Lab assay of single mutants.
Amino acid sequence: FYCSMCNVGAGEEMEFRQHLESKQHK
């Protein structure tokens, strides 16, 4: 899983979902 807007990668879907819901996500 990879967030191109934030340049952030996650190994698991749960981690990626937490990123999308976090304040760090743009």
Rank of each mutant, 00 (worst) to 15 (best):
F1T: 06
F1A: 05
F1C: 02
F1W: 10
F1H: 05
F1I: 05
F1Q: 06
Y2H: 11
Y2L: 06
Y2T: 12
Y2P: 00
Y2Q: 02
Y2G: 01
Y2F: 10
Y2N: 15
Y2K: 11
Y2V: 01
Y2A: 01
Y2E: 01
C3K: 03
C3L: 01
C3Y: 01
C3T: 00
C3V: 00
C3I: 00
C3A: 02
C3G: 04
C3P: 00
C3E: 00
S4Q: 03
S4N: 14
S4K: 14
S4D: 15
S4Y: 04
S4T: 15
S4I: 01
S4G: 05
S4A: 08
S4L: 01
M5Y: 11
M5H: 09
M5E: 12
M5C: 03
M5N: 08
M5P: 14
M5L: 12
M5K: 14
M5S: 04
M5I: 10
C6V: 04
C6R: 02
C6E: 08
C6Y: 00
C6H: 00
C6N: 00
C6K: 00
C6L: 01
N7A: 15
N7H: 13
N7D: 07
N7E: 15
N7P: 04
N7G: 15
N7M: 14
N7W: 04
N7T: 10
N7K: 15
N7V: 13
V8T: 14
V8P: 12
V8K: 15
V8M: 14
V8C: 15
V8Y: 12
V8L: 14
V8Q: 15
G9R: 15
G9F: 10
G9N: 15
G9K: 15
G9P: 08
G9W: 03
G9S: 14
A10K: 00
A10Y: 15
A10S: 12
A10W: 15
A10V: 10
A10D: 08
A10R: 04
A10M: 11
A10G: 07
A10H: 13
A10I: 10
A10T: 12
A10N: 09
A10Q: 05
G11C: 04
G11F: 05
G11L: 09
G11P: 08
G11M: 06
G11V: 07
G11Y: 09
G11K: 14
E12M: 07
E12G: 11
E12D: 11
E12K: 10
E12H: 00
E12C: 06
E12A: 10
E12Y: 05
E12Q: 06
E12P: 10
E13G: 10
E13L: 05
E13Q: 04
E13H: 08
E13M: 11
E13V: 02
E13Y: 02
E13S: 03
E13C: 01
E13D: 10
E13K: 10
M14Y: 05
M14H: 12
M14N: 05
M14L: 11
M14T: 07
M14E: 04
M14K: 13
M14A: 11
M14D: 09
E15R: 03
E15M: 00
E15H: 14
E15P: 11
E15K: 10
E15A: 07
E15V: 08
E15L: 06
E15F: 02
E15D: 15
F16Y: 13
F16H: 10
F16R: 06
F16T: 05
F16P: 08
F16D: 05
F16E: 08
F16K: 10
R17W: 04
R17Q: 15
R17Y: 05
R17G: 09
R17N: 12
R17A: 13
R17H: 10
R17M: 09
R17K: 14
R17L: 11
Q18C: 02
Q18K: 14
Q18Y: 06
Q18V: 06
Q18E: 15
Q18I: 09
Q18L: 08
Q18P: 06
Q18S: 09
Q18R: 08
Q18A: 07
Q18D: 13
H19K: 07
H19V: 02
H19N: 05
H19C: 02
H19W: 00
L20G: 06
L20H: 13
L20S: 05
L20T: 11
L20R: 10
L20N: 10
L20W: 01
L20I: 14
L20M: 06
L20A: 07
L20P: 02
E21K: 02
E21H: 08
E21G: 11
E21L: 07
E21A: 08
E21C: 05
E21S: 09
E21D: 07
E21V: 04
S22R: 03
S22I: 01
S22F: 03
S22Q: 02
S22P: 00
S22V: 01
S22Y: 00
S22K: 01
K23V: 14
K23W: 05
K23D: 14
K23P: 11
K23L: 12
K23M: 15
K23E: 00
Q24I: 13
Q24M: 09
Q24R: 06
Q24W: 12
Q24T: 04
Q24H: 07
Q24Y: 11
Q24P: 12
Q24D: 15
H25K: 01
H25Y: 03
H25D: 06
H25A: 05
H25C: 08
H25M: 00
H25V: 04
H25G: 04
H25S: 02
H25Q: 02
H25T: 04
K26R: 15
K26M: 12
K26D: 09
K26F: 09
K26C: 13
K26W: 08
K26H: 15
K26P: 12
K26A: 13
K26S: 12
K26Y: 10
K26E: 09
